[in-house]
C-alpha cells in the first residue's frame, strides 16, 4: 500500500467495535449487517443473517434494497439509500464505498476510510465466477474483515460447470426421476439455474413457490434464467425427468409427496465432506458454494495486502492461525447471530 498519513490512536479497533447488535462504526454512527434493529445500517447483501427488517435507515446496493423489499415488504426499513457499487459517500468524516463481493446478486464489500485507515468488510464473498453476480473485486486495505464459513483446508469447492455436468448426466441415467434440488431461495437457486442454462440445458425448470419472486427479481435485473414454471401447477408428466428447485425444508410438503420416486439433490460447500453429504440425504450432492473456499480465503487475504485480518462467522481458528503463519495479525471477531448461515 502507498504510505498514508495516519495515527495509531485512530487504529480501526478504536472506531470499529463489536457491540451486542453487531459491528459498529463509532464516528459514522452506523452498524454493518446488524442482527438487531438499529437506526443506521449498512447492509452487505440480502441473506437473512445479514439483512434484517426494521432498521431506521439502510444504505446498500440497489439490488440488495430490491431484494429486501421483496423479502420483507416495501416498508421494511424507514428509508433506503441506494449506493451503486463503485461509488461512495462521505458520512461524518467516514468515506463509505460499496464494491462487488461476488456472493449473490447485489452483494458488496463495504470499504470504510477514516483517519488515514482503510477497512474492508467483506460480508460473504466468493472468487469463483458466477453468471448471476458481479465478480469480486480486490480492494487494498489495512484491515480486512473476512468471513470464514469454509475456513478449514478441507473445503475446496468444485468448479460449478463440472458439478452441473453431473446433474445433467444423472438425468440420462435416471430419465424417469424428477431431480429435486434443494437450494436456498436467494442466490443458490438462481445460480444453479443460470449454470444449467450456461451448460446448454434449455428445458423448462420447475420452481417451488418460495423461489418464484426472487427468480423474477433476478430476471428483472437482467439475469437470464430461461423458461421457469411453478412445480405445483405442473402435471406429473411434465415433472418426470425434470429439474425442480425447492427450498431445503420443502421436501416434506404435500406436492413433493406426489412425485414418483424423486431424486433428492443438494448443492453446497458442505457436500465436500462425505459424512455431511451422506447426512444430507441427497442422492446427488454437488459441491457448489456461494462462499469462498479455503484456497480463495487465503488468496484473498494475501491479495488485499492487509496487515490485520478480522475473521467473522464460520471457523475462525484455522484462518486466524493461517494469518499468524503469514506474519499477519489475525483476530476472531465474536459476532453473534451468524451461526445459521444457510449454504
Amino acid at each position: 500500500m502507498t504510505p498514508r498519513l495516519r495515527a495509531l490512536e485512530n487504529h480501526p479497533d478504536q472506531w470499529l467495535q463489536v457491540r451486542p447488535k453487531g459491528l459498529y462504526c463509532v464516528p459514522g454512527d452506523f452498524y454493518i449487517d446488524p442482527h438487531g434493529k438499529v437506526d443506521r445500517a449498512v447492509i452487505t447483501h440480502g441473506h437473512a443473517d445479514h439483512a434484517r427488517a426494521g432498521h431506521g435507515h439502510v444504505l446498500t446496493s440497489p439490488e440488495t434494497a430490491a431484494i429486501m423489499r421483496v423479502r420483507y415488504g416495501k416498508n421494511c426499513a424507514g428509508a433506503f439509500q441506494e449506493l451503486v457499487p463503485g461509488t461512495g459517500i462521505d458520512h461524518f468524516g467516514v468515506r463509505v464505498q460499496l464494491v462487488p463481493a461476488g456472493h449473490v446478486l447485489g452483494s458488496c464489500q463495504i470499504v470504510l476510510d477514516y483517519a488515514g485507515w482503510r477497512v474492508v468488510a467483506s460480508g460473504d464473498y466468493k472468487r469463483a465466477s458466477d453468471p448471476t453476480s458481479a465478480n469480486f473485486e480486490v480492494v487494498a486495505c489495512d484491515v480486512f474483515i473476512t468471513e470464514a464459513t469454509f475456513g478449514l483446508p478441507v473445503f475446496v469447492h468444485e468448479h460449478a460447470p463440472d458439478e452441473i455436468a453431473k446433474l445433467i448426466g444423472s438425468l440420462d441415467t435416471f430419465p424417469e426421476r424428477s431431480h429435486l434440488m434443494s437450494a436456498y431461495s436467494l442466490g443458490k437457486a438462481q445460480r444453479l439455474i443460470a449454470e444449467l442454462r450456461a451448460a446448454g440445458y434449455d428445458a423448462p425448470i420447475y420452481l417451488h413457490s418460495a423461489h418464484e419472486r426472487l427468480c423474477r427479481l433476478y430476471q428483472d435485473w437482467g439475469v437470464n434464467l430461461g423458461v421457469l414454471h411453478r412445480a405445483e401447477h405442473a402435471s406429473q408428466d411434465d415433472l418426470r425427468g425434470s429439474i425442480i428447485l425447492a427450498p431445503p425444508s420443502s421436501s416434506r410438503e404435500g406436492w413433493a409427496d406426489t412425485l414418483t420416486d424423486p431424486l433428492p439433490c443438494a448443492a453446497s460447500g458442505w457436500m465436500r465432506v462425505r459424512k455431511r453429504a451422506q447426512q444430507s440425504g441427497a442422492e446427488l450432492p454437488l459441491v457448489i458454494s456461494d462462499h469462498a473456499d479455503w484456497p480463495d480465503l487465503q488468496r484473498t487475504i494475501m491479495d488485499t495486502g492487509a496487515e490485520e485480518i478480522w475473521v467473522t462467522h464460520g471457523r475462525e481458528d484455522a484462518l486466524v492461525y493461517f494469518c499468524e503463519t503469514q506474519g499477519l495479525r489475525g483476530r476472531a471477531l465474536a459476532l453473534i447471530g451468524r451461526e445459521g448461515e444457510g449454504e
Partner: peptide, 26 residues
C-alpha cells in the same frame, strides 16, 4: 501440509484418507 492445519482437518473430517484427499496440494 502445515501440522496444525492437518490436525484441525483430521479432527473435523475424522478419516485419514478423506482428509489427505482434500488437503493434498493441487
Amino acid at each position: 501440509a502445515d501440522p496444525v492445519l492437518l490436525d484441525m482437518s483430521l479432527d473435523y473430517v475424522g478419516d485419514l484418507a478423506e482428509t489427505v484427499a482434500l488437503l493434498w496440494p493441487p
